[in-house]
Design a protein around this nucleic acid. Structure first.
Lengths: 361, 361
DNA sequence: TTGTATGCGTTATCAA
DNA sequence: TTGATAACGCATACAA
């Protein structure tokens, strides 16, 4: 097991071995075209021989550019945010940027501390994803052309505050909810219910979208149920409420909640989709593999992460943050929202439902 | 297009406003006990007034300590790795460390590039999680007392190479597989099969563990099926193979694969658990919410991330990496592996199903 | 094409 | 208790 030499190898060592000045060595290493081929080769050889590794801190200090991006997201363990992080990291790495990742966990103080870390490290750009912090607070600490907000979730948003005109990247949740509502209505479901955490700007937005969409098709009213912020861990309270007075179809805030509800409903007499249709949101892998497969809205989470990096890069290049964007989403119809008529025809005992299942090819 | 020069507030500005020297200001800001209360307050007031943010690059350069940890993991979008990342970030942030995260995506070159980034940034410690790179290669570039390997997955491991004696953090997969095999046997299942990607040191290890465990209870042999590295995306080929000649129970490499298989089996005549038991590994959320709920092995992924940070901190403190550790895992019995005698399916006994299957075209 | 000199912003060493 | 000064390692304007 070989260990690197004790004394750190610095540029001066490389220059000395190559028989050049530090400046020449520095230029040669970054392929400055003005450097002669022979010297360039000599410097590279020396660097390789000594195992030279440039010091990013020194480079950043001098160059006033860190090649670091900061990503503040809510929770790395969440499948949606994990995908955003994956797309972000991939795009950043592709551009030669290192990524600082910190989680906010819905805690404003944590989010502030993360921002502090980013600013101290002089990140070239920052992305604030699914966080509760107000963009105004961020802009007070970071130049507006260095930060992109992804799916902002701050309280002001629910209260009608205007988001920044630039540097906001969202997915079209409103359209996603509308498509789901329309789908349910088209399939013959009348009494719809929405189940969400009951707090958070995203939840508020989706509720509003649901109401609007339902009004458009002259149905209604929508019934709203709160599962609590931890509803996705255990949805049995909501399951019991639904079992006591079942709607035709339930629209969930997200797939995590929908799957928890699907699971909890198995302890009740309510069957999905036999007795009640169920739709989710986000399109996480588990939603596409559940039984029944969930009707949900695929959100391009990886693409969101990538696009955020691109916006940041464009801002660095042009000195100005690009205008905000809204990425499209796509309704994916699963087996949890069959045509209501068909459902009624084959409605019966769990055994009958199971029998129907095995007839599949 | 050039950005207007940013006039940054530096320590000298704070010192000037506070009427002290830079040295005193620096000490006051980090609560050096030798600084008088009045001076300390003045400096802090000045810093707050000016909105001073220390420059981490300068600090690191001088202090030769970056307060940066590097985490190289396989894939941020994976639920297991995401949890490791979450635990890691939380623990690191708690200790005042920022975290560089990079993904290897099973690509040795990517892993190398990530290491380069970490070393250039002089991370105080590095964690290499679920990567294919050989520890020896890492140690050639990073001092051994600054690296922790989590669940190493390099080819040499499968070929019997000795992992480093220190700085390796694993979960007890062998025990997890053994517990699963024993559970299946106790429940009356005889003909067992293992389905895995067919490559990778982890897969090899689990296969070996399965064989060993089966030998211990004098059953056997274990049947092995390859799902391919992308088997968790679409397991229908394996599902068809199983349907053609069903074992009593299937042990999957991980939950992702098990859930994909569960899903794919729904397009065959094989029912889980009616015709065949199924067990997974990892204990991801979806496994606990699937139908039927999966019997699986809960792996303390978040704890793995946390513990890795603790090992790194201990190494920094003591100048020596702590000895390797193996975290315990826990078999969680779901509904996918009921006692064999109690099995039911929708067409009758498994035997009758088998008889019918034989006369099929 | 290459070298010289300086400064990036901070902390540590020494001196007072 | 505080201050002056020298690094830390590199990149760049300016010279040659």
């Amino acid at each position: 097991m070989r260990r690197p030499p004790e004394r750190r190898v610095v540029l001066a060592d490389v220059a000395r071995l190559a028989g050049t000045s530090e400046a020449t060595a520095s230029r040669a290493l970054k392929h400055d075209p003005r450097i002669g081929e022979a010297t360039r080769a000599a410097v590279h050889a020396a660097a390789a021989k000594l195992g030279y590794v440039p010091n990013a801190a020194a480079r950043s200090l001098r160059a006033r550019r860190t090649h670091i991006l900061g990503l503040l997201l809510d929770d790395l363990a969440d499948p949606v945010h994990g995908k955003v992080a994956a797309g972000f990291e991939e795009a950043a790495a592709g551009q030669g940027y290192a990524v600082f990742m910190m989680t906010g966990l819905h805690d404003p103080e944590r989010e502030q501390r993360a921002l502090t870390a980013f600013v101290e490290h002089r990140a070239d750009g920052i992305v604030v994803a699914s966080c509760v912090i107000d963009p105004a607070e961020v802009h007070a600490r970071v130049p507006a052309d260095r930060v992109v907000f992804v799916q902002p979730d701050y309280p002001g948003l629910a209260n009608g505050a205007d988001p920044p005109a630039r540097g906001v990247l969202r997915t079209d949740d409103r359209a996603g909810v509308a498509a789901t509502v329309q789908h349910l209505v088209e399939r013959g479901y009348r009494r719809l219910a929405y189940v969400g955490p009951g707090s958070g700007a995203s939840d508020t937005l989706r509720r509003s979208a649901a109401t609007t969409a339902l009004k458009r098709v002259s149905r209604g009213p929508m019934r709203f149920l709160d599962a609590g912020v931890d509803g996705w861990r255990d949805a049995s309270p909501v399951a019991r409420m639904l079992a006591a007075d079942p709607p035709d179809a339930v629209l969930c805030y997200d797939d995590k909640l929908a799957l928890a509800l699907l699971d909890a409903l198995r302890s009740t007499s309510l069957e999905v989709p036999g007795d009640m249709a169920l739709a989710g949101f986000d399109g996480i892998p588990a939603a596409h593999q559940s039984w029944p497969r969930l009707t949900t809205v695929d959100v391009p989470s990886v693409e969101v992460g990538r696009r955020a990096v691109e916006m940041l890069m464009a801002a660095v290049r042009d000195g100005r943050m690009p205008v905000s964007e809204v990425l499209p989403v796509r309704l994916v119809i699963g087996d949890s929202t069959p045509p209501r008529a068909a459902r009624i025809n084959s409605h019966g005992t769990p055994e009958a439902v199971a029998a129907r299942r095995v007839i599949k090819p």
